[in-house]
Simulated scan of single mutants.
Amino acid sequence: MSKGLGNGILSGAAGLLCLFLIMPTLIVAPISFTQTDFITFPPRGFSGRWYEAFFERPEWYGSLITSTIVAVTTTVLATLLGSMIALGLVRLSRRANRLVSFFFLLPMIVPTIITAAALYSPFAKLGLVATVPGLVLAHTILALPFVVINVSAVAQSMDWRMVNAARSLGATPLVAFLRVTLPVLAPGIAAGAIFAFLTSFDEVVVALFVSGSGATTLPVQMWSGIRFEISPIVAAASCLLLLVSCLLLALFWFLKRK
């Protein structure tokens, strides 16, 4: 078997596997346009009334606003903290870098359900359960590793002699950071911010523990809708989540090419 034929078979098998994995997601799209009052496939008729209902019903539209506020705030906090952590890790020895990096990557390694159960008790004592600040803090912990990984990857390949050259030419530490370090790290910071937003916007397990009537995110509202309602409005919400995720991943791909 030639090398080209082998690569073609491997690529075809990978494509079929990807198609198999995304098929359930693609089926959600036509379901969201059904005319019936219940989820059915194939859909019966064509109507956009479930998207109208999504934005007209306060529990659904309100959960979207809450998710957006939490995700944006989480992105800002995780990006700032993760970037500073990544810059600090670069200056450590290799052994210390591995040890400290492992500590900050724990939220990615530990199962989410364990993290959620561990956060609930201290959050309840501090009065953070069912509050937006509690959700932001919990999601920041989950999103931090993605920022650290992306920024660290860029920082480790950066030529730090450029910073030393800027300092030797009279630049202050702040000017050297803003005009030399920050532009080089910008792609990693942007990629980390995108993944932090997606982590918070799509997260449901920790939100089920921490959120409540005072702070219900869109994934939690969808979970409740599936359990008690089984309405096509859940499919419409799923399509909106999918659209946001695809747009942000396309932005990440564009930034990666740049």
Rank of each mutant, 00 (worst) to 15 (best):
I65Q: 13
T73I: 15
T74P: 08
T75S: 08
T79D: 08
T79Y: 07
S83A: 10
M84W: 11
M84Y: 12
I85S: 03
I85Y: 06
I85M: 11
L89D: 07
L92H: 05
N97Y: 14
R98I: 14
L99P: 00
V100D: 01
F102K: 01
P107E: 01
M108T: 02
P111K: 00
I113P: 03
A116I: 08
A116L: 06
L119K: 00
L119A: 07
F123G: 10
K125A: 14
K125V: 15
L126T: 11
L128G: 06
T131C: 06
V132W: 04
V132H: 04
V136P: 05
T140S: 13
A143S: 15
F146Q: 03
I149P: 05
A153P: 02
V154Y: 10
D159P: 07
W160V: 13
R167K: 13
L169G: 00
A171S: 13
T172A: 08
L174C: 05
V175Y: 01
A176I: 07
R179T: 15
V180T: 14
V180A: 02
T181N: 00
T181I: 14
P187R: 06
G188W: 04
I189H: 05
A190R: 07
A190F: 12
I194D: 12
F195E: 02
A196D: 02
S200I: 05
F201M: 12
D202F: 02
V204W: 05
